[in-house]
Structure formats: C-alpha cells, structure tokens
Design a protein around this nucleic acid. Structure first.
Length: 803
RNA sequence: GCCGGUGUGUCGGAAUUGGCAGACGAGACAGACUCAAAAUCUGUUAUCCGUACGGGUGUGUGGGUUCGAGUCCCACCACCGGCACCA
C-alpha cells in the first residue's frame, strides 16, 4: 500500500469536483430540499484566516451528509465585496476598487477550493456586480415606495477617520466598529430606513425560530422594548403640557420633580419666562461639548440645573413640582422628559440626594432612607390615594386606565432601536437609485433603468466636507427627472456595506435571473434557509437588518415566509496558541494555506471540527493538528488490514451501529468533536481487532467522508467500488444492534461502586442480586449489615443500601 | 446595574440528561525498533494511602433534595460576551 499523500490526493479530487460539479443544487427536483447557509466573506487583502473554515466546514459536513441522505442541498458561496477597506486600499495603491476586489476574490476562491468545500460554485454571487446590485437597488425602491426610506436632517454618528456616517449598530463604545477612531455627532441630511416600524415584529417572530438563546436574547435586548405610559404634566399657568414616558405609572404619586433633556424644545419656547436663562445656557453648552461616550462614561456624578420660573403640576395629586434639566435624560429616547420618582428609581434617587429634592415613598417594602426601592415583584402601593393597597402590577393597569379616562395620558410602548442610517459618503457602494428634482422632489429611478451603475472616477478620496466622491462627477450627477423631464440631480450617497448582505440568501436561489431577484417558483421551493450559521458579531447588525428586509419583502409579496432563517447557530472564535485573539500585531496569526500545505485539507478540516465545543472559542494548537493527521494516517492504514470477501465483522457489529447512530446525530447538533471522537474510537477498534472487511471499511469511510472528503473518496476508489463515494448512501443503524447483549452492571453499596458484574442485558433483579452476592468484594461490604433497600435500574445500576 | 453564557485532570474537552466522572485527542513518563534521532508501535498517566487486592478524596464555593448529583433546588464566588443615566 502506498503512503498517504494528501497533497496529491486532494488536488486530484478537487479537480474532479470542479469538472463534474457533483454539488450543484437543482431548482427542479423531486427531492426534499435542504438550504444550508454560511456568511459569505468580505474578500479582504489579507486572504482567508483559520477562523473562516470553522463554520464553513461545519455546514459543509451537514451538507455532504444530507446529500448522502438523499436531499437536494443548496450550499452556496459568494462575496460581500463593497466596503471601506477595499476603497482605502484602492486609494493608497491607485488601483480601481473593482480590480482590487477581483484580485481578492480570486485569492479567496482558490483558498476555499483548496480546503475542499462542497459549495455550488455555479451560484457564486458578488454584491458589487451590477447584475446583483440592480436588485439591491430594486429593493431600495420598494422601501422608498412603502415610505420606509426617508431623508432626514439629523445628528448622526460620524467617524472622523473614515469620514463617513455610521449606523448605531456600527458604533462600539463610542468608537467606529471598523477602525476604532472616535465617533462624533454630526448633523447631516441622511437617508434613513424605518426599521423601528418593524421593531415589534422583529421581537415577536423570534419566538417560533430555532435560534440559539444568546442570539435571541441579544436581539431582544438591542431592540429594547419597554411597556409603560405617556403622561401629560400641565405647565403651570401655560397652555402647554409636558409629556413624559414612564414604565412605572404606578408611582405617579411619588413624582416630586421633573427632568428634561438639555436639548428639549421647551427651553427655547419659554426662554423669556426663564429667570436663570444665562446659567441654563452655560449648562447646555457644557452638555453639548461632551460626546455621547463621555456622557455615559462620566456617569458617576449627576449634574443638572433647575429651570426657575416654570413649574409643572403632578396630574395625580395636583402638586406643584419643579422642572430640572440634566444630561442623564436623553432627547433621543421617549419624549426627552421624565417624571422623577426618586423613591423608586436609582438614578432619580441619586439626583434627588445631590440636589436635596423631596423623596416620597409610594411603594412599601424597602428602606428609602438608604436607597431607592425598585423591586416590582414585592411591594404594596401607599401614599397614592386610589391606588393604595394594590401591588405594582395592578397599580400600573389601574393608573393607565385612570389616565386614559381623564385624558391625562395613555399606554405607550417604546423601543431603544433607532432607525437605520443608510447613507454613506463613499464611492465603493451601491448608488442610491433616486434623483432629486426641484419640481418633483425625490423621484425613484424607473425600474427598467436599473441598475444605476457606479461611474468610473479618477479619485475616490472622501471629501473633507463629508460629501460623497460621486458628487464631483457632474456628468453623472446631472440628469433629467424621470417624472417631469426637467433638470435633476442624482443622489450621490451610496448604500452601507450591510445592504448587499441583507438579501443575498435570496439571490443564491436563482442567481442568473434577469426578470426578478429570483423566480417565485424557486423561492417557494428553497425558502426559508434551513440552517444559517454565522458570527455573534453580526447579531445586531447583518442578522437584524436582513430579517427586517425580509419582512419588507414579505409585505410587498416577494417572499412567502415571514422569516428568512429557520435556524441560526453561531461558532466560537479560533484564538492564537497563546489564548489571545489572532491578530497581526500579536504575531499569532495562522494561515490556513500553511496547514493545507503541510498537513492537508482533510487534516485542517478534521482538526477544526475536533478542536473543541463548536460554539466556544478555543486556542489553536499545532500539536492538535498533528494528532488529527495521525488519525487520518491510521485510517489510511486500515487498507493494510483489509481482508478479502464481503460481509461484516460480527464482533464489532454493535460498535459499528453505535457509531453510525452517534455520528448521524452529532453532525446534526454541532457536536462534531464527539462525532469525530466516535470515529477515532471505531478505527482504534478495527486496529485492535487486526482485520477489517470491505463492508465495514465502506461504512466507515462514508461516515468520515463529510469531515475528510478527499481521503475517503480516494479510499473508496482503492476499494474498487463503483461510482463515487459522494453518490453513495449514508448508512442507517439498526437500533437492535446498538444494544449490547451482555453488559457490565456496576453494583453499589450505599451509593459507592464496589464492583461490576457481567449479566445478560435482560437479567432480572433476582439474577443480579445473586450474582452480586457472589462477588467477594461486594460481600465484604454486606457482611454483618442489614439490607434495607435494593434499587435496581435494569441495564444501568444496582444499588444496595445497608445499615 | 440588566440580559445571556461558562466553571470538570497539565491542556482542548467527554459523560445516553439523575446511574461506573475524566471518552477522544494533546502533552508527559516508561518500554520496543534504531549506532542515534525523528517517525511508528506498546504501556502508564485525576489525586492521596498501599508492593498489590483494595481504599480515601475529587467536577468554582457553601448548603439542600435523593438509594444515588458534574447533572435538580437555594445562596454565593469567578470569568467570558452583549447592553447600559433607555426613564
């Protein structure tokens, strides 16, 4: 038998797969479909990282297994290629971003192919292809038609380094998610998408989905629904009312002052009545100088100032209360004003203590001398007239009713989620397909004129004044209004990186369709995605955005399913061997090419799946890689102990069936590590036994094939079997045969194992007792004691309780 | 502070969901082969007492339920991730 040479074998099979395309998914098939999806990469200049193959291998295993089980599997790949790094690279090296993208894709593709993924390459997509972004623009027009895209002058997050506006989701701790530079507030006229309109549905529809818990929790958290009431406080001697949002209407009687945000319009409106306007101006100035980051960071001490000359009336008890300004009240949430209940809110308590404001106890149960009592489960309402004696929940309902009946307020639900800032002042993105006409306003480019192709430019540099580089190309900008035919200008902002990836799973279904983003028939057959695996970092970005777009497409009637992804799982990160995140600066980056060259793709795949719990991050270990290579070498050597003739080995029958069961189940439940461990154990058993039949070896290599497709395909060929392994059938296990006939039952005395006895699997209690008492060591613990109880769990354990 | 998760040998990690804790792999140690090394093969490897048969202890900490707890309940500690003056 010749040596195991992955270098040769792997190239050979990759070439066969390239030529014969066995992993092509069919759009007209009688078979049951299975749509497996992994996040398509951003083709960066750095090439593939060892982190990429982890999720790809996982779903490749599932896909390969499902094909062997007779499914029509769609497992596609593509490129999320618009975005800043490419543009920056292009600027620096004076190469067109399209060229940079093309080169990077070429490299990525070669790397992915060298690992032997069973992607259907005939469906490869690229978000920067005009034939692709034609449909991204088409979807934008739908959003626009439905009033879900609007242009608004508003303060946005501005990255000082990228010179681009960012969505809230792209700001991490006051810094740019991408480059880490400071993010400041800048007022700009921006295209916005009304994701907030879908907030409720984005939470509610999570319920029926098979998403891992932490994904659901993070999305719910991010959307931040809170149920409460809006209440009007009359401003004394004025017509105006000051409206607040509260989640605790039950504590209204305890509200002893109000706080409004420093940007609240009330201040400007009543400037002439305010006695201390100068001091307030100074305070406002201080607040505006702080970045959002500082505002939250410097949260230790509360600051604020009372508005002298204005008072409000608490609508419950008609008390006159003061109005304060403080930066802990945000203009961007609720109504920008709160009723302060220091007795039962921690922040209000701090504020009241600092400025010596009255603290009224309205819920009994805590000690408000010491701290705010915020428990909503335990506590009884007091000092609140008609609410007295109720618990918090009942008080809330009662109060909302009372407010509504008296026209003082109403039930209200608020969300933390903000609308999606959708404009980017950059070149390398999808042009927003709108035209501005002085007569007609914003006019959509007619569908038949799509795509609006990104023009060639000399210079991609972002402009200092924050305008898109496209604005300088006058011949592109100046156009005619599709509506009135008059002079008009194109929108020069482009879409954010997240646009193309918000619907890509739909394009894979019918990637070459020119009439629609995908045909109805194909959509009906393939949707929804059965299993989508991706990074946790996309939970509140891509995953949320694409669910939103899908719901819009559902409302428009393009898709029939409310949700795009039936199941969502997430992989852990691969860390450097020093247990730190892999990065160039730490010098602990592993290049998958090196592993493929030195050990082979099958080893890389086996290792990445065997390395540990798929959902947890785990350090890289070169020794672990070697261990997996050793395993594959041993598998290869099984060919040396192959015996002639058909038939299986009776002695190992139960092990084989147990392994089929274990592997089949584990590969479906992200437990690749234990599935592979089971295969290792079985191969050890064959080795110990010293012989393997053709039938058994065939079963074994089919089970291993999804993990290590090249070596198993080669061994299949060596066995002289017909056709290819990838056209064979996944083995089924016989439940009867997974059960052992003779088993070892541990015998405990007072819960401690004192011996094991060998009995038939269906042995009765009596037989077990008798056998147990024959055991010398067990008897030692029984002698001179009274047996109080005997617990016998058939097939599991026998426990004798003595005294 | 809130939400989610995780704590098991030297390391990565197993444990049919309440039934022999440490599968599988790595590492280490010993042996075989070799002039030698690597590779390969064999054995040992939670810990303590014991030559051994065997026994004690042991799954972050403290308590509880149970014939029996890594697994269930209560309280706490540590770490990781997300959100955070969100009213």
């Amino acid at each position: 038998m010749r040596e195991y040479t992955p270098g040769k074998i792997e190239k050979k099979w990759q070439q066969i797969w390239d030529e014969e395309e066995p992993f092509k998914a069919l759009n007209n098939s009688e078979k049951e479909k299975f749509y497996a999806l992994v996040e398509f990469p951003y083709p960066s200049g750095e090439g593939l990282h060892v982190g990429h193959p982890r999720p790809y291998t996982a779903l490749d295993i599932v896909s390969r297994k499902r094909r062997l089980q007779g499914y029509n599997v769609l497992f596609p790949m593509g490129w999320d290629a618009f975005g800043l790094p490419t543009e920056n690279f292009a600027i620096k090296h004076k190469i067109h971003p399209a060229t940079v993208t093309k080169n990077n894709i070429k490299r990525f593709k070669a790397q992915l192919k060298s690992i032997g993924f069973s992607f259907d390459w005939s469906r490869e997509i690229n978000t920067t292809d005009p034939q692709y972004y034609k449909w991204t623009q088409w979807i934008f027009l739908k959003l626009f038609e439905k009033g879900l895209a609007y242009k608004n002058e508003m303060p946005i997050n501005w990255c000082t380094s990228c010179k681009v506006g960012l969505a809230n989701e792209e700001v991490v701790q006051g810094s740019c998610e991408r480059c880490g530079s400071e993010v400041i507030r800048k007022v700009k006229n921006q295209w916005m998408l009304k994701i907030t309109k879908y907030a409720d549905r984005l939470i509610e529809d999570l319920e029926d989905l098979d998403y891992i818990e932490r994904v659901k929790a993070q999305q719910i958290n991010w959307i931040g629904k809170s149920v409460g009431a809006e209440i009007d406080f009359q401003i004394e001697n004025k017509d105006d009312k000051l409206r607040v949002f509260t989640t605790r209407p039950d504590t209204l009687f305890g509200s002893s002052y109000m706080v409004i945000s420093a940007e609240h319009p009330l201040i400007e409106k009543y400037r002439d009545e305010i006695e201390n306007l100068d001091d307030i101006k100074i305070y406002q100035e201080e607040v505006s100088k702080k970045s959002d980051f500082e505002r939250t960071e410097l949260s230790k001490e509360k600051t604020g100032i009372e508005i002298k000359g204005l008072k409000a009336i608490n609508p419950a008890n008609k008390q006159e209360i003061p109005i304060w300004i403080s930066d802990y009240v945000l203009m961007t949430y609720g109504t920008g004003a709160i009723m302060s209940v220091p007795g039962h809110d921690t922040r209000d308590y701090e504020f009241a203590k600092k400025f010596n404001l009255p603290i009224i106890e309205v819920i009994k149960g805590g000690n408000i001398e010491k701290e705010a009592f915020t428990d909503i489960e335990n506590g009884t309402i007091i000092n609140s007239d008609f609410l007295d004696g109720m618990d918090v929940k009942k008080g809330q309902e009662y109060m909302i009713n009372w407010l509504e009946e008296n026209g003082l307020g109403e039930k209200k639900i608020n969300f933390k989620l903000r609308d999606w800032v959708f404009s980017r002042q950059r070149y390398w993105g999808e042009p927003i397909p709108l035209v501005h006409c002085d007569e007609c306003g914003w006019v959509p480019v007619p569908e038949e004129d799509l795509p609006v192709v990104l023009p060639e430019v000399e210079n991609y540099e972002p402009t200092a004044n924050g305008e898109s580089p496209l604005a300088n190309i006058t011949q592109w900008v100046n156009t005619t209004c599709p509506k009135c035919g008059g002079k008009a200008k194109r929108e020069t902002d482009t879409m954010p990186q997240w646009a193309g990836s918000s619907w890509y799973y739909l394009r894979y279904i019918d990637p070459h369709n020119n009439e629609a983003l995908a045909s109805d028939k194909a959509l009906k057959y393939w949707m929804p995605v059965d299993w989508y695996n991706g990074g946790m970092e996309h939970t509140t970005l891509h995953l949320l955005y694409s669910r939103f777009w899908h719901k819009v497409l559902y409302d428009v009637g393009v898709v029939e399913e409310k949700e795009p992804y039936k199941k969502r799982t997430s992989h852990g990160m691969i860390l450097g061997d020093n247990n730190e995140k892999m990065s160039k600066s730490r010098g602990n980056v592993i290049n998958p090419d090196d592993i493929v060259n030195e050990y082979g793709a099958d080893t890389l795949r086996t290792y990445e799946m065997f390395i540990g719990d798929f959902e947890k991050s785990v350090p890289w270990s070169e020794n672990g890689v070697r261990g997996c290579r050793r395993f594959l070498e041993r598998v290869w050597k099984l060919q040396e102990i192959l015996v002639d003739g058909e038939g299986y080995t009776k002695e190992l029958e139960s092990s084989i069936h147990k392994t089929i069961k274990k592997v089949s189940e584990d590969f479906e439940h992200l437990k690749f590590n234990t599935g592979i461990a089971a295969l290792m154990s079985l191969s050890n058993e064959f080795n110990d036994y010293g012989k393997i039949t053709k039938t058994d070896l065939k079963t074994f290599i089919i089970l291993l094939n999804p993990v290590a497709p090249h070596i198993t395909e080669e061994m299949w060929e060596n066995l002289g079997l017909k056709d290819y392994l990838h056209n064979s059938i996944w083995p089924e296990y016989d439940k009867e045969k997974t059960l052992d006939k003779i088993i070892n039952i541990p015998v405990q005395v007072n819960g401690k194992v004192r011996g094991t006895i060998e009995v038939d699997v269906d042995a009765t209690k009596e037989i077990v007792i008798e056998k147990a008492k024959e055991d010398e060591n067990i008897r030692k613990f029984l002698d001179g004691k009274n047996i109080i109880k005997e617990i016998f769990i058939p097939g599991k354990i026998f426990n004798i309780v003595v005294k």
